[in-house]
Nucleic acid binder design. Structure first.
Lengths: 468, 468
DNA sequence: ATATTTGTACATTAACATTTC
DNA sequence: GGAAATGTTAATGTACAAATA
């Protein structure tokens, strides 16, 4: 058999056999990582099947399995049974979304929250620190919030449709911090969590850091499909599900009442732990009729996360977290381990803002500004059919047509002074036929600046022939 | 061979063979966990050797390996090559240290920081929120601290012996949060970190949650022994080392200059990443001569963590974190993922306290109060030879004699209204012949209350015949 | 509808390292 | 100082599950 096997196996990736050191699987991952970093393997490329690569290298195929698994854990690849293993769209870049540093003319990427409303809080801050009792906010007491702070939280939660005793409530240092706590407390490395195909980029990273595997559930225009979720749950041991039922990030899909009920039914049947991220909670107060929070349909298996970054202010790190009584000890424990305590000063300012009516005025103002921002968006991008449930979204989805990678698209916008995020950043698992940009509407200082920024964006997209 | 094998194998633990389901290793861990929870297996018990248990159950011994490994990851057991696998001292309880909720007469467990000094910060808070620019603290900008805040941090760091450009500095939400960030950014599940045999309990938990294995390094009266560390590093792939070189928690050992140099040499030789936790940084300003921060001896491989909870105030979550330039991106990334940003308001209050001299006065006051508290401790427990380097410790070590478990000792003190921590909480790996209590000196409101609490503690210990 | 391709999970085999006697 | 006991790690073998043609 003096055949030249090299040509019989037209492998998309041929690791250097002579460079393989023991342990083989680690050596393989290193080579893979390098091939991706060097651009030799582009995002989306299908890697050789485990058995073929093993054959090529003369090793057992489960050793390749192990290498591929490690590369998956590092976010380099994803695999689908029956299809193959592929280089992830996000393999080359860091997906995390944060405030951009460089000089950017138009901030349409990072999702702030109409920050000029923050000035309304100055009197509140003054009031809080002037109290005789102010220095009590500075000690180690009440790490998850004082009773008084929880009572105020309880009142707000009631307004948005959640009735809960204070024992089931605690206060974390922001929404992402709450998610960190939940992943640490209620999940273990190796657990699987179901998510939308496009989901919160920082959650993807966080799950990766915790060693949790995300399972993408296909959705339609109405969001995640209950039948698909049901199927996936029957197939594999999925432990939890992460959802943003209202204006899901980045798709801006809001689940209808019927979809909520159907999903709740499936989640209940499979005993998934639901993590409901209600980052725009305050909008539910303006909705007629209000939509039920998904977790209220599943009170025994849910964690409800209510960050105040968007409704009130982003710079104070405060988030209400609702769970079952049974989960409280584990959650508190995890909170001690990552935070020791939530800053009582930050919480007290939010609390006082609620009590004095300032919070109410801020939420009203943000509602108005979000409405206006969406009108502007729909004027400039008229192809985006106005939809009732997106009228107060803080960002919008803008489909594009291109064969470029997400990185390239972002880079071209960046070169024009525009910061946007490509859908690839939010992608879990296999690529999708329909890429889009997420356009933040809440980060420019005023309506005028937003008009200018969006107009400029449109010009750039047209010039690049990206607009659909 | 109709032998009754049951008696030939006097196993300390006999899992129920008939109850074993597949996957076997998981089923085994479940049974083990139950046996420990029910008290059937006590802390310290040696489990059957992997091969014997496998024999007994008729399975392959590496399946037992796998089960034992999982139980180790969960903190239930620890194993030593050549010796065996044992039930961990901390298996039954949660080790995390946090503020106690119930009515406690004497708080000598949780380690606060002379919280009555907090009142000095009220004018500072007022000043900060009264500025025209105050609402700028409320947006998403400068997630790791503004330049101005970093310059002030830089000045403080210089005072305690660290000269660093602001590019290598960032501000996290408290010391534990900084540790979380470091473990997420610079380590992976499965990595090993060397620690003192007794170390910060929350770090133990944090490492466990991150899937990082801690390797206990034996120490003598002078702290960790460089030769032992060297040996362990030669034996296994250790990636990092976590140290509190000044008044190490809970042992109160301060490394001498020579020990620092010797350890630095070993750490350098094995290219370990050093995590230096300088939770009492301010004391170095009062030391004559000052001791070099260990990380300054290893500038290329260190992360230096300088929480301001103890030096200034515990309720504001602020910590300075110094790293190499190369590590900054990964650290910032991890910070975005768990915090989004550090509360700029909290940081600004600390910053202004430094600028106005209030911080200086607080540190002076805490120095005095710590000195007084240690005098009180040594008066009441005269057997504890006064040692120069412990004169300003925030807690002290009190050896006890007993065969009781740590939990039982704590429970008996608790029953008398005294909150203390037993050394088992801080223990990594095999048990030690010399248990002790960690007595916090900084949590009682004043000297009088401390005298009363310590006197009461002494009575209780004498009555229980625990005092050495 | 069924066979083939592809990935996954778990147990087993083998080689190794450290401790203790 | 060597043998036995003990735990660790990597690689392989086996069974299975899903996707696709």
């Amino acid at each position: 058999m003096a055949l030249d096997l090299t040509n019989l196996y037209p492998l998309t990736w041929k690791p250097d056999w002579s460079a393989l050191k023991r342990p083989i699987y680690q050596s393989l991952v290193q080579q893979l990582s390098q091939a991706i970093a060097s651009g030799e393997l582009l995002p989306g490329t299908q890697l050789p099947p485990q058995r073929e690569l093993a054959n090529f290298l003369g090793i057992n195929f489960t050793t390749v399995t192990r290498a591929y698994r490690l590369s998956q854990q590092q976010g380099l690849t994803y695999a689908v049974i029956g299809q193959g293993t592929f280089v992830a769209q996000t393999a080359q870049q860091t997906v995390t979304i944060s405030r951009h540093n460089s000089q950017i003319e138009a901030e349409l990427g990072f999702n702030a929250s109409f920050e000029s409303e923050n000035q309304r809080l100055q009197p509140v801050m003054k009031q809080v620190v002037s109290r005789q009792t102010a220095t009590r906010l500075l000690n180690y007491d009440a790490p998850t919030g004082s009773l008084h702070q929880k009572v105020v939280a309880q009142a707000y939660l009631k307004q948005i449709g959640i009735t809960v005793p204070t024992q089931q409530l605690f206060i974390a240092s922001g929404g992402l911090n709450a998610l960190t706590i939940v992943l640490l407390a209620l999940f273990r490395p190796g657990d699987k969590i179901a998510v939308d195909q496009f989901t919160f980029a920082n959650f993807i990273e966080l799950a990766r850091m915790r060693g949790i595997k995300l399972v993408a559930v296909r959705g339609d225009a109405g969001g995640m499909q209950p039948a698909v979720l049901d199927k996936l749950c029957r197939e594999q041991r999925i432990k939890g599900i992460y959802l943003m039922p209202d204006l899901s990030n980045p798709t801006t899909v809001t689940l209808t009442l019927h979809r909520r009920q159907a999903l709740a039914e499936v989640i209940k049947r499979h005993q998934l732990r639901l993590i409901e991220d209600d980052y725009l909670s305050f909008l539910n107060r303006f909705r007629q009729p209000a939509l039920p929070r998904l977790s209220t349909l599943l009170p025994k298996q849910s964690v409800y996360i209510c960050s105040l970054s968007k409704p009130i202010v982003s710079g104070l790190r405060v988030c209400y977290l609702v769970s079952t009584l049974a989960d409280q000890p584990a959650l508190r424990q995890a909170m001690f381990n990552v935070n020791v305590k939530t800053s009582a000063l930050d919480v007290e300012i939010i609390t006082t803002a609620f009590q004095t009516g300032v919070a109410e005025r801020i939420m009203q103002a943000k509602y108005q500004r979000a409405t206006r921002a969406n009108q502007i968006f729909e004027t400039i991008f008229p192809s985006q059919t106005p939809s009732h449930d997106r009228q107060q979204a803080f960002f919008r989805r803008l489909p594009i047509q291109t064969t470029l990678t997400g990185q390239e698209v972002e880079a071209r916008c960046q070169a024009a002074g525009i910061h946007v995020f490509h859908s690839d950043r939010f992608l879990v698992g296999p690529n999708t036929p329909q890429p889009f940009l997420r356009i933040s509407l809440a980060s420019m200082p005023n309506a005028q600046a937003l008009v200018k920024a969006l107009t400029h964006l449109k010009q750039v997209l047209v010039a690049q022939d990206l607009l659909l």
